[in-house]
Computed example of a mutant assay.
Amino acid sequence: MADNKTGRDKQARDAERRQQQREIDAELERGDEEQPPDESTESVDLEAELEALNFPATGSDIVAAIGDWAVESAEGSYSIEELVPKADDETFDSPDAVRVLVQVPTVSAAMKRIVEASKTLSNTEFSWAQRKTYETTFQELKAIDSVDDDEGIQVISDWVVEQIHDKEKLPSSRAVRREAAKFCRANGYEVRNDEWLGI
């Protein structure tokens, strides 16, 4: 491959795609460990619907095909439309990428709001690495037992969306972690320096 801008861009996209697939595979593995597989008819039907789609598929394609499909979780019921960003430039390479979203619906719903809000920004790319750090912050908030009903996820996603609208830019990953740590401390949860939120 030629050592020019186009070649370097392609290498970067390929590396990012490989990283995404590794993370999806790891997420699915962890999902299998944490809870027994759901063999309900609803789960099997959703699997069949996903397999019937042509991948890669855009978020818009997925929402159009199965957007009203309900996913039950401990946090309540979510439609696929509430979890998948409805956008033509959001691409899912495989059914596994969609399955990862439904495993932690509160995090996926928060990320959907942020992704859709980021589309209002001009000349701003919401990179895969930045998305991953946002997601990790939300997953850390979900893991905190003393913060009930995933309130932290809602509060921080609201804050990020406000920052996008007010300042017309995505807050840095560090700023999101700092805001999440502030929320935890205000709600009586100690955040140590060696933890993800410990900024």
Rank of each mutant, 00 (worst) to 15 (best):
D3Y: 14
T6F: 14
G7M: 15
D9C: 12
Q11V: 12
A12P: 00
A12N: 12
R13D: 15
D14P: 04
A15N: 04
A15R: 02
A15G: 12
E16K: 02
R17S: 12
R18V: 05
R18N: 08
Q20M: 13
R22T: 02
R22Q: 08
E23G: 02
I24F: 07
D25K: 04
E27P: 00
R30Y: 00
D32A: 08
E33Q: 02
Q35C: 01
D38E: 08
E39L: 11
E39D: 11
S40K: 11
S40M: 09
E42M: 06
E42Q: 13
E42H: 06
S43D: 04
S43T: 13
V44T: 09
D45R: 09
D45Y: 02
L46K: 03
E47N: 10
E49C: 09
E49S: 10
E49R: 14
A52C: 07
L53W: 10
T58L: 06
T58P: 07
G59E: 02
S60Y: 01
S60K: 12
S60C: 06
V63F: 04
A64F: 00
A65D: 02
A65E: 04
G67R: 11
G67H: 05
G67P: 00
G67K: 12
D68S: 05
W69T: 10
A70T: 14
A70W: 03
E72D: 12
A74N: 05
A74G: 10
A74R: 10
G76K: 01
G76V: 03
S77L: 05
S77H: 05
Y78V: 00
Y78D: 01
Y78M: 00
I80D: 00
V84H: 02
K86H: 11
K86G: 03
K86Y: 03
D89A: 07
E90D: 12
P95W: 08
P95A: 07
V98N: 05
V102T: 14
Q103K: 05
P105W: 10
S108N: 03
S118D: 01
L121V: 04
L121R: 02
E125F: 04
F126H: 03
W128I: 02
W128Q: 13
A129V: 09
Q130E: 10
R131M: 15
K132P: 12
K132L: 08
Y134V: 04
E135D: 05
T136W: 03
T137G: 09
T137A: 15
F138I: 06
Q139N: 05
E140T: 06
E140Y: 13
E140G: 03
E140A: 09
L141G: 07
D145I: 00
D145K: 05
V147R: 04
D148E: 09
D149Y: 02
D150F: 14
E151P: 07
G152T: 15
Q154A: 08
I156K: 07
S157F: 13
W159F: 10
V160C: 08
E162L: 09
Q163M: 10
Q163G: 09
D166V: 14
K167H: 14
K169W: 01
P171T: 01
S173A: 13
S173C: 08
A175W: 06
R177K: 15
E179S: 11
A180C: 09
A181T: 00
A181R: 10
A181K: 13
K182P: 01
K182D: 15
F183W: 14
R185H: 04
A186G: 08
Y189N: 07
E190C: 10
V191A: 11
R192L: 13
D194Q: 07
E195L: 04
W196H: 07
W196D: 09
W196E: 11
W196F: 15
L197D: 08
G198E: 09
